[in-house]
């Protein structure tokens, strides 16, 4: 995952469309953004707004512009307006707690959107970061079930990188125990910086004399660094993972130098939040919400109700999905693809 996440125009994938939603005339849902300047939230909002419009519900939003106090004031204002459900992208998941308490005390259901707020009465909706790691590892194991693996991990100071690693380990560890997979090198990547990933990969290759069969890179940026390092010793084409669905990464998948990317369509998350908001406003008990799970992977380990969305594994075989979603143009996807083109480029 990138620290400043994804952008670009996105169209829908009809993934959640199947769920029937009751008409919700008069429902008002509030969204308190942490920092709407970041491009990604515009994508989330388009999904959220679209789904709420369909239900006949209203969306009101506020932007805290990266400020704790602004976000507290925003939430007070939204409560005063009398909204039915409050969704929050927390700027600071600790400092936000008093505001959350206030809303809960007014009987307003609170949804923590994408960024976890650890409170037993808050409902959490997010892409499952652990699933990201699982998708990456599964993607590699499918094509390279045994052999020598390298782990290029994310930024050591980013909780998200640790979630991803947890997911990767879930899949890899049993195979390591069976002796099928050997981890010959692993390094964190400060700040998720691609060039740091490239240097680390180069040095690991030196250390193991190029004897590597697959690389678990934690996002597409670091995967780019890894592929560049592999190319310079003639190993381009061995399995490499990533996440985010970067245009460059999707192009690498089309060209065969990357295997899989865990793609998170932010619109889906917006739609999901709309649906959860509607259910909660209807009086559905949080534990009864469709697809609800108990989430206890936060730093404090407290359990709370959640719906987590699985990212989509994008590989050579289903590149058409991102094109159909309008995420990437066919020209960008297929730039430089020559022989052995994937179906999406034919």
């Amino acid at each position: 995952m990138k620290r400043r996440t994804l952008m670009g125009a996105v169209a829908s994938i009809a993934m959640l469309g199947a769920l029937p939603v009751a008409a919700q005339d008069g429902l008002t849902v509030a969204m308190s953004w942490a920092n709407y300047q970041e491009e990604r939230w515009k994508i989330d909002e388009s999904g959220l707004r679209e789904a709420l419009d369909e239900m006949g519900a209203t969306l009101v939003t506020a932007d805290a512009q990266s400020s704790n106090s602004q976000q507290a004031a925003d939430i007070e204002g939204l409560i005063a307006r009398g909204v039915d459900v409050l969704a929050i992208v927390a700027w600071d998941s600790e400092a936000i707690l008093p505001s959350v308490q206030k809303a809960l005390a007014e009987g307003i259901p609170v949804i923590a959107y994408e960024r976890q707020i650890e409170h037993p009465d808050v409902f959490y909706v997010a892409f499952n970061p652990i699933e990201v790691g699982r998708i990456q590892a599964r993607g590699l194991v499918e094509v390279q079930p045994e052999g020598k693996y390298v782990l290029i991990k994310g930024s050591p100071t980013d909780q998200y990188a640790h979630y991803v690693l947890t997911g990767q380990k879930e899949i890899i560890d049993p195979l390591v125990a069976e002796g099928k997979i050997e981890i010959v090198g692993e390094q964190w990547t400060e700040g998720w910086v691609p060039d740091v990933a490239r240097k680390n990969m180069e040095n690991i290759l030196t250390a193991v004399s190029d004897d590597v069969d697959a690389v678990l890179a934690s996002n597409d940026g670091t995967a780019g660094g890894v592929v560049a390092a592999l190319a310079s010793v003639g190993l381009e084409g061995i399995p490499v993972s990533g996440q985010d669905g970067d245009i460059a990464a999707l192009n690498r998948i089309a060209r065969g130098s990357q295997t899989v990317t865990a793609w998170k369509d932010a619109r889906d998350l917006g739609r999901l939040a709309a649906r959860v908001a509607a259910e909660l406003a209807d009086g559905t008990a949080p534990a009864e919400v469709t697809d609800r799970v108990l989430w206890d992977q936060g730093p404090k380990g407290e359990a709370q109700n959640a719906v987590v969305l699985a990212p989509v594994a994008i590989t050579r075989d289903n590149l058409q999905v991102v094109v159909d979603a309008g995420w990437i143009s066919r020209e960008d996807l297929c730039a430089g693809v020559t022989e052995d083109a994937p179906d999406a480029c034919k």
């Binding site: 994804l6 952008m7 670009g8 940026g221 970067d246 245009i247 192009n251």
Partner: peptide
């Protein structure tokens, strides 16, 4: 580039 990666 709105944070996008430009390549190749």
């Amino acid at each position: 580039a709105q944070g996008r990666t430009l390549a190749p």
